[in-house]
Write a protein that binds this DNA or RNA. Structure first.
Lengths: 223, 223
DNA sequence: TGACTCTCGATTGTTAACAACTTATGATAA
DNA sequence: TTATCATAAGTTGTTAACAATCGAGAGTCA
């Protein structure tokens, strides 16, 4: 029943990155993480190796681990990969979605709405990503779902680095339109709206100025 | 100039899996790997964590690491993911390919031909995968290229487990047709041929019987 | 024969101490 | 002031010993 400790560390850091609590470039010291999670360095090292394999952490020999800082070129490639993968996921959803699946999507839209209404930015970020993750689950292909989790994680880093407006989230009405098309079984429209949605997201990024935000590790890893 | 030791272990095991020298289910004992690579267990453990993150190794707590054995469902999902990703890669290649790129593809076809003519099965396997990897490189999107590397690795495991005929490789003429379409700048044809090619590959698999092949670790890891 | 338990060997997990490296600090000299 | 270099502190890498767990096999009993 007890989960492996290193996976707990991985998930904890992954969540912090996805929620934009851990900004790009933050140093992930072994001792610091050991203290935070109350374990020995061995587990931390394993966790860092896993995160490095997922491309959200850069591991410099003899110099430690840092949250990855995607370049503008990385950003373009990540968004192209998202279009490729999410298109297939969306097609799967249109073809497989049960009434219950669509109800789940609608419930999610309501939650997103509520978080936005309350001006709850952290929740809005999480739910915005959650929409895409939920689609991936409903698509029924865990291989694609796992890749999309990675890509949305990296998208969070990219948005945190290069976003212009104070808020750059998925526009809620775009999600709503996609769900409507799925419910209507209109595959072509769903795919078109999704593609546009991802392009809008990418367009809301300004590659000129990269804002550097130093973060406190222990503060970021509560939750 | 010296590469990190754990990455050397990872690459070595990855190559062995891609070349079908390491069959699915093979136990990867820490002590055995330490002996083979002449290092301490710490590096081996880090390498196994990385391989687990790449989904080519299953890590069972307190029971050790084993080369992953994909299920038939995994297989379907892997091939669907390949179609999604390689389609985008191929589109990129058609749009970006220089004369030199196309020359590289043609050279690769000749090598494949030669290996087949010599009945050199190991080389044929490696080159067959190499064609897809080369396309991924020429596509210019390292994010997609990395995913495709993972997926071709898992394809090797799948083919090793479920392939019916003694030889289940990419049909060389199918690769040839794709290159011809790329050279002609005929995007639609290239995409269609690639999609068909991947479906043929998947069709050449018999999910009924799963042949179990036990392998020797030290023998598989030469090269 | 079949099922169950116990013990032993082997493997993985944990911990701590030590070595090697990197970086920051401060002193020295031009 | 600026540059260079030496020292020191902190961090990562390595190693070895020890603890915990699992699986196989022998043995026992119905």
């Amino acid at each position: 029943m007890d989960k492996p400790l290193d996976l707990l560390i991985v998930d904890s850091i992954l969540d912090a990155i996805a929620d934009q609590r851990l900004p790009a470039g933050t140093k992930l010291g072994e001792q610091a993480l050991s203290d935070i999670f109350g374990c020995n360095r061995a587990n931390v090292r394993r966790a860092l190796a896993t995160l490095t394999a997922h491309q959200v952490v850069d591991l410099l020999p003899n110099r430690g681990a840092y949250v990855a800082t995607p370049t503008p070129e990385d950003a373009r490639n990540v968004f192209q990969a998202r279009r490729a993968i999410e298109t297939t996921i969306c097609r799967n959803v249109v073809r497989r979605a049960t009434a219950e699946d669509i109800a789940a999507l609608r419930r999610h839209l309501i939650e997103e709405d509520a978080a936005r209404g309350r001006d709850n930015r952290p929740a809005a970020i999480r739910l915005s990503r959650g929409f895409h993750i939920l689609m991936a689950r409903l698509g029924g292909n865990p291989v694609l779902a796992r890749y999309l989790e990675e890509l949305t994680m990296r998208s969070s880093l990219i948005i945190g680095l290069y976003a212009t407006a104070p808020v750059t989230l998925c526009a809620e009405d775009e999600h709503r339109g996609i769900v409507a098309a799925i419910e209507a079984g209109d595959e072509a429209t769903a795919l078109r709206l999704l593609d546009e949605h991802l392009r809008h997201l990418e367009a809301g990024i300004d590659f000129d100025r990269e804002r550097v935000v130093a973060g406190s590790l222990s503060a970021a890893l509560r939750g």
